[in-house]
Design a protein around this nucleic acid. Structure first.
Lengths: 343, 343
DNA sequence: CTGAAAGCGCTTACAG
DNA sequence: CTGAAAGCGCTTACAG
């Protein structure tokens, strides 16, 4: 491996100073046309590349976003957000350090500490776990954006209109003639954050049912421990035993996928025997049949989070004066898993 | 935002030099117990954190791996590899810069250039596109690991035994009594890299069929343009029209998911009407029924790639002297989508 | 229009 | 056992 060329090497080749090379490189300040040409030639000849590290140290700005997230697999929601974050980052000349914490608070902490030491310009928590970890980042003077499930620690945030999304799903089913609609929740942090995402979705379900004159039975509601296939499967089997349910709304496509497996296992068909609606629009398009689902704008969530993060890192003085909290809309994606109730 | 404390601040508080602080921090070199205590107290008091940036510049080592990959969504294969890479990285004190290229050569190039400028210690291409982009990294003196689909450019690599995987799938189906087995391929770069992944899988299929005395008909073979739902769906519909096929082997779970949708749409059941085997073990567990599939050790692929990358970055002199090419085994994961042929 | 020089926060060979 | 000092590769205020 040969030594890389530095700005000084370029300056020497061009018989100019590093200051002039820097001016040409960044296109600012006065440089004579002749000098500019000499510099450009020297860069060409040496194959010089700027050392971002040195630049970052000097400018006290790394153009790096630390993205701390639950896990990019298997829940594609997080992968979708990450792609949005990365896209907006790149567009602005930033790069993304990624850190999956698997919902482990210790691993989240390690991520925060690593990001601080690496001088990231901002940290995005796509679903923070421990409030004190979020606080540690803020304490260190780093702009923070909490996504989807903000803790009680105040910071910029990007959230989603879960209530309305849930409403859309249930209205769709009621519009198709369904009355006995099961609800499968599974927020891992239900009732911990306030109000939890799945509480909002439950509220949307309940309010819409009642508004339409349907009093949901206690047995129509079930919460898994996680957003897991197993919970979806198990709860769906309970629902099938009940005998009255004709449609099911699950708060995550993974839960819906599990429910679908139970239905399939019992030799029933969707939507002929039971209609099914998911949430997220991650696995929904891949299932048989393709699922009607409440779409979360994952990519846009990521873009928005990154945009706020970058803005905040540029004018840190504003922080934490004006906190931005952007709420994004969800929308119903109708596919083949829902149909009119037949009598 | 207050200024962060530096090593000099700590040294001042402890009434010692930065050299001594550094020694304590890294636990090497001689430091008297008394001095060590003073330093530790000063660190405690100031909340000092090491500035990795400065360290990296000085040591000429960033402890950063650049992971250039196709896209973490929707093909979870890449997400799985990334998780492996990250896990091994963290274990060794490294961080991961992520870069999705969406199979766009220009975006891949931008990623390589960014990684070079940011002085990453190694670059992992989880599926390189342009050989010259791989070459650019090597040219810059950066250790490279190509994963799964190495280009003709020589570098470290982690590959998968696709041929055997394919063999396992087809033997499984033949063992269940199937003879007319359809093959759905969709390697986006089939016949470009040599030999392409899907060519290997096709060879495994063909050899196994012939070894068992079955001469596959031309119509039993079909390639999509991509690993897409649409291609899987379309090809499966063709297969259904044929009338003789009783089992299908798809080279990607996404293709299998599409095929499953076609089968479902035609009111047929898996495995009762047709058996189905996928490849990857990404979507397979989530489908109805859960799919028998050839599992790729995604996590281990990532771990292996990161391990090689880190080793290579530490002893660069070896590079490119001894190139490591590790091949990982696949295995068949039998689930509910395959059953004995009933006459 | 151009350059000398200080400095970002570390590390480390060297002297004592 | 400890510290002074050079240097990693940039940027930038300042002088000319």
């Amino acid at each position: 491996m040969r030594k890389r060329f530095t700005m000084k090497d370029v300056a020497n080749v061009a018989h100019l100073s590093t200051a002039t090379v820097a001016r040409v490189l960044h296109g600012q300040g006065f440089v004579s046309e002749k000098s500019r040409k000499r510099v450009l030639e020297a860069i060409e000849k040496t194959g010089y590349r700027l050392n971002t590290l040195a630049q970052s140290l000097r400018r006290n700005q790394t153009k790096t976003i630390g993205h701390l997230l639950t896990s990019i697999s298997p829940n594609l929601f997080f992968a979708g957000v990450e792609l949005g974050v990365e896209n907006e980052a790149i567009k602005n000349g930033y790069s993304v350090l990624i850190w999956n914490d698997f919902e482990d608070p210790k691993r989240e902490r390690l991520g925060v500490e690593t990001f601080i030491q690496r001088q990231v310009d901002a940290i995005i928590f796509t679903t923070p776990i421990e409030p004190q970890n979020v606080y540690a980042a803020i304490e260190a003077g780093i702009p923070v954006v909490q996504v989807e499930r903000p803790t009680e620690v105040k910071s910029h945030a990007v959230i989603v209109d879960n209530y309305t999304g849930s409403t859309l799903a249930v209205e769709h089913l009621i519009g198709l003639g369904h009355q006995c609609i099961g609800f499968i929740g599974g927020d891992p942090r239900a009732f911990l954050t306030s109000p939890s995402v799945d509480e909002q979705r439950l509220a949307g379900y309940r309010d819409t049912m009642i508004k339409n004159g349907i009093m949901p039975k206690e047995e129509w509601l079930a919460f898994g421990k996680y957003y897991s296939l197993e919970d979806g499967y198990r709860i769906m089997e309970q629902f099938l035993k009940l005998g009255d349910i004709t449609a099911v709304f699950a708060t995550c496509d993974i839960l819906a996928a599990g429910a679908l497996q139970a239905i399939y296992q019992h030799n029933l068909r969707v939507p002929e025997d039971v209609s099914l609606v998911g949430f997220d629009n991650t696995y929904a398009p891949y299932l048989s049949p393709p699922l009607t689902t409440v779409e979360q704008p994952m990519f846009e969530i990521g873009i928005t989070a990154a945009r706020i993060a970058i803005e905040a890192s540029i004018k840190k003085s504003d922080f934490p004066g004006t906190l931005k909290v952007e709420s994004l809309a969800t929308r119903l994606k109708v596919r083949a898993s829902t149909s009119a109730l037949s009598f």
